[in-house]
Simulated scan of single mutants.
Amino acid sequence: MIRHVLHSWRSVRRGEVLVFIAAALLFGALDLTSLVEVDVGDHLVPVLVRHLSLPLVSCAVLLLCWLPAARSSPIHPARRARLVAATLLGSGLIIGVVYPLAELVPGTSICQLYAAKHGKPDCNAFRLTALIGDTLWVSMPALMLVGMLEFRALRRRQDQAAQDLLREHSQLRRHALGARLAALQAQVDPALLFDALVSVERAYDRHDPSASARLERLIRHLRVALPRLREAGATLGGEAELIASYLDLLRDLGGQPPAFEAELGSRGATSLPPMLLLPLVQRAIRLGAAGRCWLAADGTRITLGFDEEGLCHEDEELASLRERLAVLDARLTCTSGAGRTEFELQP
Score class of each variant (00 low, 15 high):
147 G>K: 03
141 P>E: 00
207 H>D: 15
168 E>G: 02
155 R>C: 06
138 V>A: 09
196 A>E: 04
223 R>D: 15
218 L>I: 09
215 L>A: 14
177 L>C: 04
205 D>C: 14
196 A>F: 01
194 F>R: 14
135 T>H: 13
204 Y>T: 08
216 E>G: 14
135 T>I: 05
218 L>D: 05
142 A>F: 04
199 S>Q: 09
131 L>A: 15
164 D>I: 09
176 A>E: 06
188 V>R: 05
205 D>S: 11
222 L>F: 09
155 R>H: 02
222 L>R: 06
144 M>F: 08
232 A>P: 05
171 Q>D: 13
215 L>W: 13
185 Q>C: 07
161 A>I: 05
146 V>F: 02
141 P>N: 00
184 L>P: 01
129 T>L: 06
163 Q>E: 14
205 D>A: 11
132 I>C: 12
156 R>D: 12
191 A>N: 05
223 R>A: 15
219 I>D: 15
185 Q>R: 08
229 L>H: 12
139 S>N: 09
164 D>N: 13
159 D>K: 10
133 G>S: 14
184 L>G: 07
139 S>T: 12
162 A>T: 05
142 A>D: 00
218 L>P: 04
159 D>R: 12
190 P>M: 01
173 R>F: 01
135 T>P: 04
201 E>Y: 08
196 A>P: 00
183 A>G: 04
220 R>N: 15
202 R>Y: 12
130 A>N: 13
132 I>W: 12
199 S>C: 08
130 A>G: 05
225 A>M: 03
170 S>T: 08
139 S>D: 05
204 Y>R: 11
208 D>V: 03
214 R>P: 03
205 D>T: 14
162 A>C: 03
165 L>T: 08
194 F>H: 13
163 Q>F: 08
227 P>R: 04
141 P>K: 00
144 M>I: 11
175 H>P: 04
187 Q>W: 15
128 L>A: 11
139 S>M: 08
197 L>C: 13
169 H>D: 03
212 S>T: 15
163 Q>W: 08
199 S>P: 00
221 H>P: 00
180 R>A: 07
167 R>E: 10
218 L>W: 04
138 V>W: 06
182 A>P: 00
159 D>T: 13
219 I>W: 12
146 V>C: 06
208 D>T: 00
133 G>F: 11
161 A>L: 11
220 R>Q: 15
163 Q>G: 11
225 A>C: 05
148 M>G: 10
187 Q>K: 11
192 L>V: 01
173 R>H: 04
179 A>K: 01
200 V>W: 02
155 R>G: 02
210 S>C: 10
226 L>C: 14
193 L>Q: 00
147 G>I: 03
145 L>F: 00
